[in-house]
Amino acid sequence: MEYYLVVSAIMMFAGIYGFIVRRSLLGILISIELILNSVDINFMVFNRYLYPDQMEGFFFTLFAIGVSAAETAIAIAICINVYRNLHSIQVKNLDEMKN
C-alpha cells in the first residue's frame, strides 16, 4: 500500500511544481490533471487496503474523474478563446491587467 501512496504523493507534488513553473496554459492544465489523478489513486488505495468492506472511495473516484473531465473541457474551451484573442497561450502574454 505504501508504494501506491508514494506514487500518488510524487504525482501530486510534480503537479504542484508544474503548475508553478510551466509557461503555457496547456502545460498548467496537464499539471492540474496530474494532481487530480493522484487524488483518484489515493482514494482507490485507501478504499482497497484500509476499508475493503465499503465502497465510498470508489464512488468518490468515479465522481472525481467525471468532474475533472468537465473542468478540463471548460479550461480547454477558455484556452482556445484566449488563443483566438491573443494568438498565443503563453502565460507571459496574459498581462493585460496589472497592479
Binding site: 498548467i28 492544465l29 494532481i35 487524488v39 489515493n42 477558455i78 478563446n81 496574459l94 491587467m97
Partner: peptide, 29 residues
C-alpha cells in the same frame, strides 16, 4: 481580451485549489 484572460486565470486557479482540496479529502478519508 480581458474577459478571456480573466476566465483562464479563474478556471486554472479554481482547478488547482480544488485539486489540493481533494487531496486533503482523500487523506481525511
Amino acid at each position: 481580451k480581458v474577459s478571456a484572460e480573466a476566465g483562464a486565470k479563474y478556471i486554472l486557479s479554481a482547478a488547482f485549489a480544488s485539486g489540493l482540496s481533494l487531496y486533503g479529502i482523500s487523506l481525511i478519508y
